Computed example of a mutant assay.
Amino acid sequence: MPRLLIVHHTPSPALQAMFEAVVSGASDPELAGVEVVREPALGATAVDVLAADAIVLGTPANIGYMSGALKHFFDTVYYPCLDAGRGTPFGFYVHGNEGTEGAVASIRTVTKGMGWVVAAEPVVVLGQPTKADLERCWELGATIAAGLL
């Protein structure tokens, strides 16, 4: 069974809502052939990444950058997964109350260096997520999961 790994840092109600929407989309009954694994960024390991067939990342934008937790995740898995993880499809979502450009750029830079392949456009939300934002998160999860079937 293909495995979708969701690596997230969820320190706020806004990010919790986005995370839950991604999980809901990825876990849609029509996608029952995909195993959805959720790991907090501070707990996810290279073993998790190497066992995954696709990945969704979730982070707040903190001072114009991805969260320290997601950065720690990348620091932990970068070299162990550099060769074996090339070609891994991924997507991501970012929440911020101000600028998110730096967080988006930093995720794109690291994942490009790892050889991961963008499988869906990122969901970037400023302020309180709207119903439309949460629907885009649902679609992100569903799109990445459907790509594994």
Results as ranks from 00 to 15, higher is better:
Ala51His: 10
Cys81Ile: 11
Ala142Asn: 01
Ile6Asp: 00
Val77Asp: 00
Gly102Leu: 03
Trp116Leu: 07
Val118Met: 12
Gly147Val: 05
His8Lys: 03
Met66Asn: 05
Ser27Pro: 09
Gly25Cys: 02
Ala26Ile: 07
Val23Ser: 08
Tyr65Lys: 11
Asp133Ser: 07
Ala52Lys: 04
Ala145Cys: 08
Ala103Leu: 07
Ala21Pro: 12
Leu149Asn: 02
Val94Tyr: 00
Ala142Met: 02
Ser24Glu: 15
Ala120Gln: 05
Gly58Cys: 06
Arg136Thr: 13
Leu50His: 00
Glu121Ser: 15
Glu20Trp: 07
Cys137Trp: 10
Lys112Pro: 02
Gly102Ser: 08
Ser12Asn: 11
Thr59Ala: 08
His95Tyr: 12
Leu50Asn: 00
Ala103Cys: 13
Ser67Lys: 02
Pro80Gln: 07
Gly102Trp: 02
Val77Ile: 12
Thr143Lys: 14
Leu31Tyr: 11
Phe90Arg: 00
Thr111Leu: 08
Ala142Cys: 03
Pro40Asn: 01
Leu50Pro: 00
Gly25Ala: 02
Ala145Ile: 08
Leu4Asn: 05
Gly25Asp: 02
Glu20Met: 09
Leu148Cys: 06
Asp75Glu: 13
Ala145Thr: 06
Ala17Lys: 14
Thr100Val: 11
Ile55Lys: 00
Ala14Asn: 14
Glu121Thr: 14
Cys81Trp: 13
Tyr93Phe: 15
Lys71Ala: 10
Glu101Ile: 00
Leu82Phe: 13
Val36Lys: 01
Thr130Ser: 15
Asp133Val: 05
Glu101Ala: 13
Glu139Ala: 13
Ala84Pro: 02
Phe73Ala: 01
Val94Lys: 00
Ala46Asp: 03
Val110Ser: 04
